[in-house]
Amino acid sequence: MAAKPRVLLFAYACDPRRGSEPGAGATVAGVVSEIAESVVVITRIEADLPPEELQKQLGSNVRVITTGPRTGGMPTYLRYFLWILAASKVARKLRSESQFDVLHHATYATDWFVNPFVFLRKLATEVWVWGPAGGASYAPAAVSRIVLESAALSERVRTWSTNSIRAVVHRLLRAKVDTAIALNLDSERSFVRGKFAKVLTHSNAVLDYENLPVRGVPDERVLVYAGRGVSWKGLTIAIKAMAFLPDWKLKIAGPGTNSDSYRAMAREIGDRIEFLGALDRASTLSLFASATAMALPSLHDSAPWAAGEAAGIGTPVVCLDLGGVATMAGSMAVVVPTGSDGDLLQKFASAVRTTPHMDAAPDRSHTKLALAETFVNAYRRSPR
């Protein structure tokens, strides 16, 4: 491999203006551009972000090629699959014209669905890298019933379907992929079980620690939740655990959290729960900085950047031993085990009560340097 590799990067979602998968794709592309001689990014067509504009934002040594279906009216994973087929075709053409040292699939950051590698033939001169990817997090049935209630059946279907697809995809790719990068420990274990030759673990986040607000010392015990109101995010646990936290207040922010069902749960607790609705980024960070602790008892968040931002401010993050919340929060994570005996809500409340006594520095481990070092390691060929 050259001193600096020539990289072909697959990033279905890649938009530095947005969060979640698009932001992660852009972050990965930007970091790769700093360690590579040249980068060709294959991404989806975005009507409001021309390829030349995206190219400018990602780096001077980056070329962006868009492909795939233009319509957004089809189901998400159907559109993604059609993009994978189109991206594979583009990659075959590019590789017939130029030599690449590394092929890297970044987004979607899922460890269970097919990606373009399935439809490509590997060349002996190439290193193939998959990730950071996640998705192998599954809650025990008892926890699903508490959090999801009537949606627990849907969670069982998700577990069965993704595990079934993952088993096939891992069999197809383990001999091709040189390095698999997991977003969290659940996916690390999944890649190891899948017998991938080299498995690393790192988030796909580069957090702007310098512009985080300074944490204040709250006059009262305040727990905050910031996230969407979808059931698997675990807001139900945060609300119901308040019954065991009589001297605490809970502030809830995020789209979909101000629903009748959540308000009905809160009324059973009393007037110690406040619904703030959807907040902008600055207000959300200020909320973290003014809190005693953050609650994010999600069942399968792979790498929630909000947990990393709260930890970067120095706010403890109370979470379950599922997914990537604890990975993102690092030393500021207070982890509640889901597989042991005992009432989950009481265990969660007990964990919350420990947070005012934590004596740990803010966790600021999700840096550009750390992600770049992970990619340098991943791009290094290892003997099989």
Rank of each mutant, 00 (worst) to 15 (best):
Gly324Glu: 05
Ile65Tyr: 05
Ser98Val: 03
Ser298Thr: 08
Ala372Cys: 04
Ala124His: 10
Phe196Thr: 11
Pro132Tyr: 01
Ser290Gln: 13
Gly72Val: 04
Thr110Phe: 06
Gly131Pro: 07
Ile45Ser: 11
Asp343Leu: 07
Trp128Asn: 05
Leu58Lys: 08
Leu287Asn: 09
Arg63Leu: 09
Ala253Met: 05
Met332Ser: 11
Val352Gly: 03
Pro140Gly: 13
Asp341Met: 03
Gly339Met: 08
Leu123Ile: 00
Ser259Asn: 05
Lys251Gly: 07
Thr107Gln: 08
Pro218Asn: 06
Leu371Met: 14
Asn163Gly: 15
Ser283Cys: 04
Thr27Trp: 08
Ala205Met: 15
Pro255Gly: 14
Lys249His: 10
Leu94Cys: 11
Ala241Arg: 00
Leu207Gly: 02
Phe81Ile: 04
Glu53Asp: 15
Ser302Lys: 06
Leu223Glu: 07
Tyr108Thr: 14
Gly59Pro: 06
Val334Leu: 02
Leu235Arg: 12
Asp271Pro: 04
His300Ala: 13
Ile252Gly: 06
Phe288Gln: 07
Arg79Glu: 04
Phe275Asp: 06
Phe196Ile: 09
Phe244Arg: 06
Lys122Pro: 03
Ala307Gln: 08
Pro362Arg: 02
Ser365Met: 08
Gly73Asn: 13
Phe10Val: 06
Leu120Thr: 01
Val39His: 00
Leu148Lys: 02
Gly254Ala: 07
Leu58Val: 09
Asn61Cys: 10
Arg381Asn: 06
Leu85Ala: 04
Trp83Pro: 01
Asp260Met: 10
Leu148Thr: 09
Thr355His: 01
Ala306Asn: 14
Arg171Val: 13
Leu235Met: 10
Arg18Trp: 00
Lys89His: 14
Ala151Ser: 12
Gly339Gln: 13
Ala29Phe: 01
Ser286Gly: 15
Thr27Ala: 11
Val334Ile: 13
Arg79Thr: 05
Asp301Ile: 11
Ala36Leu: 08
Ile273Met: 03
Ile239Phe: 14
Ala136Gln: 11
Pro140Trp: 04
Val192Leu: 09
Gly229Glu: 12
Asp301Gln: 05
Ala24Lys: 14
Val376Tyr: 04
His202Trp: 13
Ser365Thr: 14
Tyr12Gln: 02
Val114Asp: 03
Gly270Leu: 04
His202Thr: 15
Leu322Tyr: 03
Val376Trp: 02
Lys240His: 09
Glu126Tyr: 07
Ala289Gly: 12
Val168Pro: 07
Leu172Gln: 15
Glu155Arg: 10
Lys89Tyr: 14
Pro75Leu: 11
Ala360His: 15
Arg121Trp: 14
Val222Arg: 15
Val118Trp: 08
Val177Trp: 03
Glu220Tyr: 12
Ala306His: 08
Asp359Ala: 15
Pro51Asp: 13
Thr125Glu: 02
Thr315Tyr: 03
Glu220Gly: 00
Glu34His: 12
Lys251Met: 14
Gly324Arg: 07
Leu120Ala: 01
Asp247Lys: 10
Thr374Asn: 00
Tyr225Cys: 01
Lys195His: 12
Leu85Trp: 10
Ile35Asp: 00
Ser350Cys: 06
Ala141Tyr: 14
Ala307Asn: 07
Val157Asp: 11
His357Arg: 15
Ser302Gly: 13
Ile165Met: 12
Leu207Lys: 11
Ala11Phe: 08
Ile65Cys: 08
Tyr225Arg: 00
Ala11His: 01
Val169Gln: 10
Ala2Thr: 11
Thr201Ala: 12
Tyr12Gly: 01
Leu296Asn: 01
